[in-house]
Simulated assay, not measured.
Amino acid sequence: MAQAEPGRRERKKAATRQALSGAARDLFLERGFDNVTVAEIADAADTAVSTLFAHFPGGKEALVLGHGGEREEALAAAVRNRADGVTILQALRDFLATRGPFDPAPDPLSRRVADLVVATPALRAYARTLWTGCEAALAEVIAEQAGEEAFSARLLARYVLEIPDLAGTEPDPPAALDAAFAHLRRGWPGLI
């Protein structure tokens, strides 16, 4: 069944969210995250501050990194929809390898945003919160797909979700990502 086109109201909400995110990103890249106020972002997007918070209750950090629901869905899909013969750990590594500081070929704007996140303590902390907030959903899909007992699945999910924060700040993030998964494969040999 074909998905219905979004209505006018939904399109307007999406356009407002896009305008706010774009204005915030441009201001943050130009002046630094800590040197921009929500009032300046709202003004640049031609909206009210209350509108900004209605669309982004997480505040300035959410303007750059979103709310986390997309991550949760994408992580679960990476495990559930992996190709035959691809292990759970490999699917998770491959998924992370396309994100933020691990992306091998980002467009210049994406690279600048990833660098901003890594260099800004508030953004880095928020990103970590978004990743670790996916723990229950990831643990559930790992347990479902691998037959792991609940605690083992939670443990693995927790370790995987700490990797973006730990490896993403290393001098060579892709190499650190590979090293992190090498350690995990030793701890969960059945999921290799």
Rank of each mutant, 00 (worst) to 15 (best):
K12G: 00
Q18S: 13
K13L: 12
A42E: 09
P174W: 09
W188V: 04
A14Y: 01
A62S: 15
V38T: 15
T169Q: 14
S50Y: 02
W131V: 00
D46L: 08
G59M: 09
A179K: 12
I142H: 04
K12Y: 10
A24V: 04
P171R: 13
A175H: 08
A45Q: 04
I88W: 00
L75P: 02
D34Y: 05
F53N: 05
L20D: 03
H67L: 09
L177Y: 04
R17G: 03
D165A: 15
A23W: 04
W188R: 06
A39F: 06
E40N: 02
K60A: 05
A54Y: 14
A24G: 03
K60G: 02
F56P: 01
E61K: 10
P164I: 10
A167T: 07
A97V: 05
A83K: 14
T132V: 14
D103N: 15
Q90K: 11
H67I: 00
V36K: 02
G66D: 04
D34E: 15
E30K: 15
G59Y: 08
L29I: 08
N35R: 13
R25H: 00
Q3D: 11
G68A: 06
A83T: 11
A76R: 15
F33M: 05
G22V: 03
P189V: 06
G187F: 09
A114F: 04
A150G: 01
G190T: 12
C134G: 09
H183L: 15
V79W: 05
R158C: 04
S152I: 10
E162W: 10
R31F: 07
L177T: 01
S152R: 15
T51Q: 12
I163E: 07
Q3R: 15
A78S: 11
